[in-house]
C-alpha cells in the first residue's frame, strides 16, 4: 500500500487550520484511488483531542510529543520528517503553505531527493499524484509542473471548506519514541516569538476584508476593521496601501505580500492588479465593491457592487448588524 504523509503544524500546541485543511484535501484526493493510506506527522507538544471532529477519512497520526519540537527548529524538524518518510515508506509528503513549510520543504527536497511541487495538486483521478499547477509571471499565465522523482513533496494550497464531512472518520494517534536530540541541532534557534495584537492573520483568516487605495487614507480602514470584527475576519490590504504606509506589510495580499485562500474575500476599492488577483486565486467567494464598473477585480468576483465604498460599506455593516440582532 502506498502511503501519503501530511505534516501537521502546531504553534503553542494549537494545530493550524491550514494543516487540517491540507489533511482533508489529501483525503479528498486519495478517496478515488484505492490502495493509498494517509498518515500524519505532528511535531511538538499538542493535545491531539483538539483534532476530534475536524479530520476526515482514515489514518494514523505519528506524534513527536516532545519539548524539543515545541518551537520550529529546521534541523530537528527535517530529521524527524525525513525519518518518518523512510520508516513509513511514504512516497508523498504534503505541507500547508506556511512560513514554516517554505523554510523546511526545500531542505527536505534535497535530503530526500524528492521533487518539490507548490500550488494546487492536480485533480483527483485525472493524473497520479505527481503534478501541480500554479500561477506564474505575476498571474499572467498558469503553469503545470510534473515530478521527475519517485518521491514528491507538495506545498499545497487548500481552501478551508465549511462542509468537510468528518462522519465516520477513523483517526488514531501513535506517540513516537523520544528521539536523540543533540546540542548541535540547536541553531538556528528561535529565541522569541512576538505575536501581533488584535485580529487574525490574513493568511489564516476564513473571511478577509481587504482595502485598496480607494479607501482614501489609513483612517478609511476603520470601516474595514469594523466590518472584519463583525464577520470574525481579518483586514487585508493591497500593495499601494502598504506602500503609502496606511497598513503594515503583514497585511499585504499580492505578489510581494501573502497568498490567501479564505472562504470569503471582500475586495473594497481594490482595482485588481494581476499581482493581486494571482494571490486570491484560491479564494472561495469573492465580492468586489468598486466605483469603476470596468475594474479588473470584477473579472474574478462572484458578486459585485458598483459604488463608492464610503457609501456602500456603512450600509453593508448596518445590514449585517441587523441580521445578527434578529438571529
Amino acid at each position: 500500500m502506498k502511503t501519503v504523509l501530511v505534516f501537521l503544524e502546531q504553534r503553542e500546541g494549537v494545530i493550524k487550520q491550514a494543516s487540517i485543511d491540507t489533511w482533508n484535501h489529501v483525503q479528498e484526493l486519495v478517496a478515488l484511488r484505492p490502495g493509498v493510506a494517509v498518515s500524519g506527522i505532528l511535531a511538538g507538544p499538542a493535545r491531539t483531542l483538539q483534532l476530534e471532529g475536524l479530520l476526515a477519512g482514515t489514518g494514523v497520526i505519528f506524534h513527536a510529543n516532545e519539548e524539543a519540537f515545541r518551537l520550529y527548529n529546521p534541523r530537528r524538524y527535517a530529521r524527524l520528517v525525513a525519518e518518518t518518510m523512510r520508516r513509513e515508506g511514504a512516497t508523498s509528503l504534503f505541507f500547508a503553505d506556511t512560513a514554516l513549510s517554505r523554510d523546511l520543504a526545500p531542505r527536505l527536497s534535497v535530503r530526500l531527493q524528492a521533487s518539490l511541487l507548490s500550488g494546487t495538486p492536480f485533480d483527483k483521478g485525472k493524473v497520479d499524484d505527481s503534478g501541480c499547477a500554479r500561477l506564474v509571471y505575476s498571474g499572467a499565465a498558469i503553469a503545470s509542473f510534473a515530478s521527475e522523482r519517485a518521491l514528491n513533496i507538495f506545498i499545497a494550497t487548500s481552501r478551508q471548506t465549511s462542509f468537510t464531512t468528518t462522519f465516520g472518520a477513523q483517526i488514531s494517534v501513535v506517540v513516537l519514541e523520544p528521539s536523540m536530540v543533540t546540542d548541535d541541532d540547536l541553531f538556528p534557534m528561535v529565541s522569541s516569538i512576538t505575536m501581533h495584537k488584535g485580529m487574525r492573520d490574513v493568511a489564516e483568516a476564513t473571511i478577509i476584508v481587504a482595502g485598496g487605495r480607494g479607501m482614501g487614507s489609513s483612517g478609511g480602514f476603520c470601516l474595514l476593521e469594523e466590518l472584519a470584527l463583525l464577520l470574525g475576519g481579518a483586514v487585508g490590504a493591497s500593495r499601494p496601501v502598504v506602500d503609502e504606509g496606511w497598513r503594515p506589510h503583514a497585511e499585504q495580499i499580492g505578489q510581494t505580500g501573502k497568498t490567501v485562500a479564505p472562504v470569503l474575500y471582500l475586495a473594497c476599492a481594490i482595482s485588481g492588479a494581476p499581482q493581486h488577483l494571482a494571490a486570491i486565486g484560491s479564494a472561495g467567494t469573492v465580492v468586489a465593491i468598486n466605483r469603476d464598473p470596468h475594474a479588473p477585480i470584477f473579472d474574478v468576483a462572484d458578486y459585485g457592487i458598483v459604488g463608492d465604498v464610503h457609501l456602500v460599506l456603512p450600509k453593508l455593516i448596518e445590514e449585517l448588524q441587523d441580521f445578527l440582532q434578529k438571529r
Binding site: 499572467a140 499565465a141 509542473f145 458578486y303 457592487i305
Partner: peptide, 24 residues
C-alpha cells in the same frame, strides 16, 4: 531535474460576476 514544466498557458478567466444593487 527534479521538476519539469509541462505547460505554460495564458490565464483565461471565466467572468461570472453577478452585479447586485444594494448591500441588503
Amino acid at each position: 531535474p527534479y521538476v519539469t514544466i509541462t505547460s505554460i498557458k495564458p490565464l483565461v478567466r471565466e467572468k461570472k460576476c453577478r452585479f447586485v444593487q444594494d448591500p441588503k
